[in-house]
Design a protein around this nucleic acid. Sequence first.
DNA 1: ACCTAAGATGAATGCGCTTTCATTCACCTG
DNA 2: CAGGTGAATGAAAGCGCATTCATCTTAGGT
Lengths: 367, 367
Amino acid sequence: MSTTPTVYDVAERSGVSIATVSRVYRNPDSVRAQTRERVLAVARDLGYVPSGNARGLASRSTGVLGLCFPDYSDPDAESEAEAGAGGHGDEADDEAAMLYSDQIIRGMERAARRHGYALLIAASLKGGPESLVAKVAGRVDGFAVLARTVPTEELEVISRRQPVVMLAGPRESNDLDHLDHIEVANADGQRELTRHLIEDHGLRRLAYVGFAEESPDVEARFRGYVEACRAAGIEVGAEPDLRVAMMTQAEGARAAEALLDRPGERPEALLFANDQMAVGALHTLDRRGLRVPQDVAVTGFDGIALSRLVRPALTTVRQPMRRMGEEAVELLVRRLSDRAQGKTEDPVSMTLPVSVARRASCGCRAA
Amino acid sequence: MSTTPTVYDVAERSGVSIATVSRVYRNPDSVRAQTRERVLAVARDLGYVPSGNARGLASRSTGVLGLCFPDYSDPDAESEAEAGAGGHGDEADDEAAMLYSDQIIRGMERAARRHGYALLIAASLKGGPESLVAKVAGRVDGFAVLARTVPTEELEVISRRQPVVMLAGPRESNDLDHLDHIEVANADGQRELTRHLIEDHGLRRLAYVGFAEESPDVEARFRGYVEACRAAGIEVGAEPDLRVAMMTQAEGARAAEALLDRPGERPEALLFANDQMAVGALHTLDRRGLRVPQDVAVTGFDGIALSRLVRPALTTVRQPMRRMGEEAVELLVRRLSDRAQGKTEDPVSMTLPVSVARRASCGCRAA
DNA sequence: ACCTAAGATGAATGCGCTTTCATTCACCTG
DNA sequence: CAGGTGAATGAAAGCGCATTCATCTTAGGT
């Protein structure tokens, strides 16, 4: 217990060299059965477990893939889940708080497992040491990063030494052209959803709520919104009707207040750039006595679990997050084997299709 | 690109020793600002990222915690999700397949993050190489294991060299007494649920479906069931009415068939040892034209997402899986710091409370 | 019985970093 | 100006394993 046993201990106690001990684990068939058994017995006896670090160092590969994602935690969402997932009382539980990143983790884990890899996950602690990525990068053979988790420059540096695939953010302009990249059809989804509101529900006074910081996803979504509006002959500005500081429920609620307080006719539909904001808006509307969707329709984007649990259930655009995780792993694995063979292929960029979930908040189902 | 840069490269190019380069990363304040900047500049230039393996080897600690869990994948559940989560049509998506382990991962990740650790997750590939644990164990400072993922003997060996906490299975008899251990109140939950069926719904002809392999959880649940029955003066055998080979939906469906085909009066309630089996049973009953809960009540155990999505929604016992993950990390962190200080504390064993979710399948809500 | 080839094992080196311990240097103190 | 201090840095010794390459067995062939 005091000092953990190493190859040396096992070798000595079983009367062989450390090379043989190593072989017993790496390549059992190359050791005579009798010797092997003896070594294994001693190992068991001593409580020997090969050090992954040493192994990785010596063989320069870890058998681990990684995922870095931002600290999505939304305090509102947490309390929401505990308080009752939008009024569900005892229905509330962890499920409601399942987010974006959880689905990706799930997808990656599955795929990684199939390929014999383990998965290392780490979220950037807000305001923590900047070295999150470095920490992960140093321990894995390759990894995926959710967009905007890591400073571009740092990523650029790291991607020179190991495969990196960027998730959900369009490839950032210049430096990162050589990164593989997976995104979803943000514009398509928002366009289709908007078209649905306009054509199928006959709504024409729409308002779009986006995100203040530069976010490629949000921009793409807004673009889809604009396209659908223009196609229907509805005039819209070049900017969302409102931009919030964070894409949280609280901000969504506040955004709804602001939009409703604006002079002029009340919008017939509020479109939000993500589900959490939309859920926040639902609360505001409820408090103000406005019925959804009769008085105002509300839509989100993402398709998180909560979107289905709130009342009225939220019409939104579902992203194939799990699949994204799987594709990321496939890509990494391919890169790794390419690299092992000295091949060099051009960076891949794929776009996964999304689908509109028509639920109650736009009027497609009973609340 | 050809060869990844190391401390040596950085040291040479910036005219310092490798010791200084190391300090720049480990203990920046101990290096003169001017020197530090120079080193960092070179590092950035070269694309240097410290090797986690080498670091771990040298400092014998990784900053990573681990989780091993069994391959829960239930093909039925997957297809269920794709086909429509019990008839929900387009409502179907990944959410429905969120399982036990996903919640634990989530809890662990959160807690690990708070303590500055990353999380390594790995599922035992069914029939894969036995070395799953060894792989994980060798790369982390401590880890949690879901019961029955790993042969007891192997765990025993490993736990001698690093903190291990066992999740959800009662401490296995002899060898593993020194393992920390977290479980949920299986018996309490099943007892309360059974009591509810008997007292609040007036049901008396119950049937319990368990798991054939020895499973401490299932045994505890069954024990709770028996206690509640006896307390109500209902006579029950020492064994579940039926034991299945796997706790999957298919097996649950089959179990329901078997129970309904038995001679004698039809049971008023079918209690399953987990949600997935109960969902399978729901299908059988539906196909046979039996109404739930009017003709037969059905209950599960676990509280997975699917349990709420099926129709009728499943009455079940919710486990605080996420919290279990968090507690596991807390325990590991404490152990690690104890160990660092040379302290040795007795193994901890904690039991987390569960809660009964009364939904439609027992008659508590509209279907 | 002798030689050869294949098989099993050992010796030695390096993977990239952390960490004493020792050394150097610039500054203070008296 | 000598002696002393503390800060900054360098030298060197591992950390635990994988992996040639060399050496030693052993079985097979004639």
